[in-house]
Every structure is written in structure tokens, then in C-alpha cells.
């Protein structure tokens, strides 16, 4: 059952990710990316990360990607032309990428041969309570720093948006 669920959502995630890369219109890419995020949320549930799964859908799919779709609609961005990137990227990009992927997969197989098998319910420490406790004890300083970071981002976005109004 777990393997079937993993298989379904892994295939959906990979297909949507391929769609993100090959679609020529940005809005199709954006919707495919939402598909990737949704399937990843299901995989997080399988790994016992219930809070992160909900945050993934609320923050990533529900807020960040809506912002992307909003900007694409606002700019009325059209489809991309056929002209490719620079020659070096076209020649070296694909082989290097495949080499990188092969190497990563090799190391994953090599380093985790006898690791735990994942089954649903094998780890139940991902509740909102556990995350909240860790956030306000061990990770208090990073948490406060990210809040400052968000404040900076808000001010930066306002400054950038205000400049074009004048």
C-alpha cells in the first residue's frame, strides 16, 4: 500500500516536474509546479511530516505559487520563442546534468543500502506540537532571524514597487 502510494505520487511529481521544464508558456509551468508541490505534500504525509505537509500546501502551493500566477497574469507573459541559450549551455548542459544525476543516484544507493524502510506511521514526531516546541527552544534564534528577513523582504518589495509608480 505504501509502495503503491509512493509510486503514484512519485510518478506524478516527476511528470509534473518534466512539464515545468518543457512547457513553453509560464502559466502551464506554474500549474505543473503546483502539481509537484501537491504530490510532495502527500509524500511528506507518508514520511510522518503532517505539519510540514499542510505548510507545504498553504505556503508553497497556496501563497507563493498564487503570487507567481498573479504576476504572470499581470504581465500577460506570452510563450517563449525558439531561440536557445548560449552554445556552451546547449552543448555541455545535458551531459553534465545526466552525469550529476547518475553520480547522485550512485552515492544514494552506495550510502543507504541498509537504511530503514519507510512505512506510514513509522515516525510520528512531526506534529504541530513537536515542531512548535523545537521552534521556540532549539531554533529560537534562527526563527527570530527569519522574521527579520521577512520584514526586510516586505520593505524591499514595497520599495521596488513604489519606484515604478513615480
Amino acid at each position: 500500500m505504501d509502495l503503491i502510494l509512493f509510486g503514484i505520487f512519485a510518478v506524478v511529481a516527476v511528470l509534473c516536474a518534466i512539464n515545468v521544464v518543457v512547457q513553453t508558456h509560464p502559466i502551464s509551468s506554474a500549474i505543473s509546479l503546483v502539481g509537484v508541490m501537491g504530490s510532495l505534500a502527500v509524500l511528506y504525509l507518508l514520511l510522518g511530516a503532517e505539519f510540514i505537509a499542510a505548510a507545504q500546501v498553504i505556503v508553497y502551493a497556496g501563497a507563493i505559487m498564487v503570487l507567481f500566477v498573479f504576476v504572470i497574469m499581470l504581465l500577460n507573459a506570452g510563450t517563449e520563442g525558439k531561440k536557445g541559450r548560449s552554445l556552451m549551455v546547449q552543448l555541455l548542459g545535458a551531459p553534465l546534468l545526466v552525469a550529476f544525476l547518475g553520480l547522485t543516484c550512485y552515492f544514494v544507493q552506495r550510502l543507504f543500502p541498509q537504511a530503514d524502510e519507510v512505512h506510514f506511521g513509522g515516525f510520528t514526531g512531526g506534529t504541530a506540537k513537536a515542531i512548535g516546541e523545537a521552534l521556540f527552544t532549539t531554533y529560537l534564534l534562527p526563527f527570530e532571524v527569519t522574521s527579520v528577513l521577512i520584514l526586510i523582504a516586505i520593505i524591499g518589495a514595497i520599495v521596488l514597487a513604489r519606484k515604478e509608480m513615480d
Binding site: 505504501d2 509512493f6 548542459g93 544525476l101 544514494v108 543507504f112 524502510e117 519507510v118
Partner: peptide, 21 residues
């Protein structure tokens, strides 16, 4: 049935490579 950890990590690598592409 269970899923080996390496499947998840391989999926992660594949998605990362697609992002790089």
C-alpha cells in the same frame, strides 16, 4: 509493503536535476 529510503532520495535527486535543467 514498505518503501526504501533510497527511493525518496533518488526522487529528490531527479526533481533537483529537472530544476537545474
Amino acid at each position: 509493503s514498505t518503501v526504501p529510503i533510497s527511493y525518496f532520495l533518488t526522487l529528490s535527486a531527479v526533481l533537483f536535476a529537472l530544476g537545474v535543467a
